[in-house]
Nucleic acid binder design. Sequence first.
RNA 1: GGCCCCAUCGUCUAGUGGCCUAGGACAUCAGCUUCUCAAGCUGGGAACACGGGUUCGAUUCCCGUUGGGGCCA
Length: 532
Amino acid sequence: MNPEEFKLKTPGEVRVRIAPAPTGFLHIGTARTALFNYLFAKKHQGVFILRIEDTDPERSKPEFEKDILDSLKWLHIEHAEGPDVGGEHGPYRQSEKLDVYAKYLQKLLDQDKAYYCFCTKEELEAQKQYQMSIGQAPRYTGKCSGLSKQEVKQKLDKGEKPVIRFRVTPKKVKFNDMIRGKIEFDSALMGDIVIAKNLKEPLYNFAVVIDDFEMKISHVIRGEDHVSNTPKQILIAEALDLPQPEFGHLPLILGRDRSKLSKRHGAVSVNQYKEEGYLPEAMVNFMAFLGWNPGTEREIYTMPSLIKDFSIDRIQKGGAVFNHQRLEFLNAFYIRQKSIEKLTELCLPYFIKAGLIEKLKNNPHPPDPETLQLFKDGEKPEFRIKQTQEVISLETLKKIVSLYQKRLKKLSDILELTSFFFKDKIKHEKDLLKWKGMTDKEVVMSIDNLNKVLSRIKPEDWNRENLEELLTPIAEKFGQKIKGVGDRGYTLWPLRVALTGKQASAGPFEIAEILGQEKTLKRLQEVKELIK
RNA sequence: GGCCCCAUCGUCUAGUGGCCUAGGACAUCAGCUUCUCAAGCUGGGAACACGGGUUCGAUUCCCGUUGGGGCCA
């Protein structure tokens, strides 16, 4: 840890925040910003705050706010203050404090640090075009900046709709970015900026300054897309004589084409990943390494270890491409770490939602979102396979899941991989049954042989160990007989394909055990008829 | 267009002037294992954008070029 980081300009408590607008589902980039803020707060025994920036009533929706809350909770990025949990520096929704903004706006107006501007969109547009044509930065020329009180009143009385502009003092605005170091802007290039549509409708750059002050935010850690907002906010805070927070700008998450990650790159909301069956621990581990690394070769990090090793001065400056394959790798890794009980509980909703199984009446509890515990202790839940109406125990489901644990990249993969267990009839491709160029006749011979052997097994002896012990020598002998080599494939491959219908699957013994003797024989029979 | 930021394998990155014959991870390729697919193990290929300086010595420092990105409307 670099001690530099602890030199906090504003001594006292570390208070950080994320401030998403509830105009869409929680974006992966916002989640990553939240994570870094959270880690920074935890690292410094500080407070992580959630603020909802819902000043745009058109686009802000309660369901999006809910999604933000739910997704953060799912990721275990917990805020100590926010719209749902409250806090002494609230309200935490911008829409609930419009009078506060109005107060500061009025103050600026009274001190003539801001003024009403009546220029029309058309005027402004024409001006901008002109400025750009002569190679200048487009900025407001200050046409209305000299309007007298009477003129303003007249225009107001006439019903003209003004905006409120902030007088930008031309100067070099400097700040020391926690991640990037010194950054300097020439505010003369900005022109007077619009800070509100009117007293009741503050705009982003203004509202942020007020909120961050009111919430006593010590460090503003946000995406790089905000760097050019920073000087504006510094100037506004200065005009209001407010203390400046520290700023840190995170590199952006990029899509494959290296532009800012957005919907056109695919799934970007946290809830989409959740639904597809990505684990929160994988998401967190993955997001943390998008622009940060511990400087060691360790790659696996859970939240507690991240908190321990996180340091803001190890954050990268350049944007990071979202590497989906790496997310999958991490997700598969965390899936493999799960206990079979836990993993089964995680998979059950997928089976149920897909209509493969249904719950029997004796376990009506909805899953506990905290523990993901689907059942109360001591309860023996049972399920029914929808297609066959057979009862299937949790134990059996656990066996199924455990067979495929190593093959799951995401939870939803379980459906495609295991659906053959839940189907009455499965589709077979005749040629798939042939191992190394077997003929139809040889396949039938193999199946007859299997039939003979398997039907003789006593029901109580039907388990994986016995099947393997019995079938292995038989398979070798069969290979020897038809091809002169002890290749078990001539028996085991047709068996496996007969049971699963698939080119790739878990092994035939464990599958046969789960399917049971009756179904195993039935599937062999079906395959035989297919060939004839 | 203006301003700001950035630049090591395909991707995420280690590297803070000599430990660099540039390390790790994902991906990829080959092999082992094997009835298949996974998982696992072993091994291979793969990068310092370019040009100038500074220096005994630059991936590392400075300048420029190029490239990429962000913001502004």
